[in-house]
Design a protein around this nucleic acid. Structure first.
Lengths: 227, 227, 227, 227
DNA sequence: CATGAATGAGGGTTCATTCAT
DNA sequence: CATGAATGAACCCTCATTCAT
């Protein structure tokens, strides 16, 4: 029958909607209270759903946190990939990714707060789209684009400042060029020559592309990304 | 009478002992479970004291955490100060402090784990002896020893990698020269010339001096600091 | 849809039931142990509910006590009002209210015990239906039906003996006419002439009317009110 | 030896002092927090003694409460007896006792607060010197000085208003003649003729005599008893 | 005796999870 | 599926009591 398909499809859509609603609320709650301070009551109050509904979608708060991290990770990966695919070499990709990450954190304060409170080390390590970045560092090293004693060290030199900068973005309003400044200096640490670092850190950045139903867009209400 | 003084002194000493015992256990527990996973029961089990005793010394777990952070901060500050006082200029002091921090983290895995789980951003920001480091960065900038767009940025470039490296130390065993390698690259990021960075990152480091009743010594049982 | 209303209504009813069950148990427990001796465990044991359920209805034991006092106060007020509305003048109403109060205390020993243990001064003052009584005393004074130096004094002369008599009812079995005897003498104290006092203290008292779901009825299982 | 006696005597005196100090503090604490809200910590803080010392004098808080009630009871009895011994007949003694009780409550607010919070029904019944009053009521009835259906009823008509008046004294400042007014009306309730009641309620009241080390005097700092 | 640290039972409160409607 | 009441384990905190010094 046709109506069965219809019923099913409508049902699936509604399920998606509810799931997104929960993720959206979760982002706000986790950003505000941190992963250990947030309790299920906060979630259902924020989402204005019943307790039972929560459990129809997630079995624990931890599972919700992971789902949220995964969703954000995917969106971020999309956003970064769109930029990075244009780039010819690995170190340029690293520079673009780092800047995109910081710009996103600045444009979406909830995202930044979430990263600042929840991400480290629980999340950052395990997923938040940094796999590609690590691979690019590896390639850059192999291709002689950077000169570091070890790729591990390169990671600490990229991720550490990134993390720290997210915190800075959360508690203050650093100058407009902060992402680019930081990127340039990080590249210098990796052994890129000063002029090349400056160039790579200021490559034109096409405006971020987020899917229409993006969590960041919905929850963030983001400030307009810097012109 | 003399006995009153004696009684008082003995009492004070015993109180100190118990307090240290609690701090010692707390370091282990916080290192293992993190500040949000640790409950008071963990503390009193680890310290083998009664529940009431806990409350005779600390009103909440949070207060214990702060006391612990303060104690560690003080010890670390002592340790760093002893090294740093020899240094002639601010940027050399930054290099020494960073290396000392990482060496300490490597020598005392409990300390590293504590930092990795508890320190960011709850602790690192507010106290863990980084005040001096921030001041030195400021001075270095003023004296033209480093060249960064802002001191805030310099902070992110020092503290971020430090934090990240502590995590690396916790989960793996990077090469022996990791602290020096990282320090050299961080200095390069700050604008120090490569040779000067290498020199500053390998200044001789006198062995760490900890007070006899040091928490690190007692709780850490630390590996022998690398020769 | 109709089912939503139904579901809601059923839910509300069940909530009411549970609340009444808790109040009923609370009356027994408070009557037995007093407001300061009763702990939440006593409540949940008596009501045979879980600890969590208690907190779904009341946040603290004190809040339960207040809710109970309010409920009893309301029932008592209803009961008294039904009698008193027949009365033509304020002093007659005072007499009827006083007698009704004592009869109720005698008919419902749990109520008496509760009053004896909990009521003074925590409850009596603030609510237990005595507002009307105070107003009637005021009116009586204004209309010259009683002659006392102050209404405050009149209050002490009515409420004091009432309270004291409740205690007497709790610990012994005074003669059948105790409420009427006491009422007559109290009226005399207020300046009512002896014969008039006797008359007012023995006006016919229609049988008490309690709502079907009355707490007194359910918890008290009351002795049959004296014929 | 003589010194042994000396040592013993000095010791006994010091014990008395400490005991009185504890009782004095206890009166303040019980008056403020009530018997169920006061904890041993309150006592030792108020008395500025150590925890151990408390237990050298009283085994529990309840025991302290009883000792305090007994002490106050004794002092009150002394005070009342001194007045009452002059009185020729039982009903005059009742009047004097009631007035003395209320005057004392007014002069010593801590005493009044203690009675208001602690006395009923825990204390009043069991000791606070009302034995004599009950006996006098009995005698008065036997001698035909009062006319009440039962002595029990007479008790409720005297003690109830007394209690209630203490509360009134605690929360407000009734007119100066309140004790006498109340006494006169109570006597009328008991069947004393109006003029006789007025006369008995205004017999001259010699100033209260308290022992030099009276608890009331020390703790109360009493307002000067009304002229 | 005075002291105050140590103890642990008792009681309060939260919150994740289940389940009947 | 959505709902929200019921549950109880886990935690937090207080405070009476003991006891070595």
């Amino acid at each position: 029958m046709h109506s069965d398909n219809h019923r099913t499809r409508v049902g699936v859509e509604r399920r998606q909607k509810m799931r997104q609603r929960l993720l959206e609320s979760a982002l706000q709650v986790f950003a505000e209270k941190g992963p250990d301070g947030a309790v299920i009551d906060d979630m259902i109050l924020a989402a204005e759903v019943s307790r039972g509904t929560f459990y129809n979608y997630f079995r624990t708060n931890e599972e919700l946190l992971l789902a949220l991290a995964e969703t954000l990770s995917d969106e971020l990966a999309q956003l970064v990939d769109a930029l990075v695919c244009e780039a010819s070499n690995p170190i340029a990709r690293v520079a673009l990714a780092l800047r995109a990450y910081l710009h996103t954190a600045r444009s979406y304060p909830l995202f930044a707060a979430f990263l600042d409170r929840a991400a480290w080390p629980r999340i950052a390590t395990q997923g938040l789209t940094l796999q590609q970045l690590v691979r690019d560092l590896q390639l850059a090293q192999e291709q002689g684009l950077i000169a570091v004693p070890s790729v591990q060290l390169a990671q600490d030199l990229v991720l550490g400042p990134a993390m720290s900068a997210v915190h800075t973005l959360c508690v203050g309003t650093p100058p407009h060029s902060y992402p680019e400044d930081l990127t340039a200096l990080v590249l210098k640490a990796l052994g890129v020559a000063a002029e090349e670092a400056a160039r790579l850190a200021t490559l034109p950045l096409s405006p971020p592309q987020l899917p229409a139903d993006s969590l960041l867009l919905r929850a963030g209400k983001g400030r307009p990304p810097a012109a």
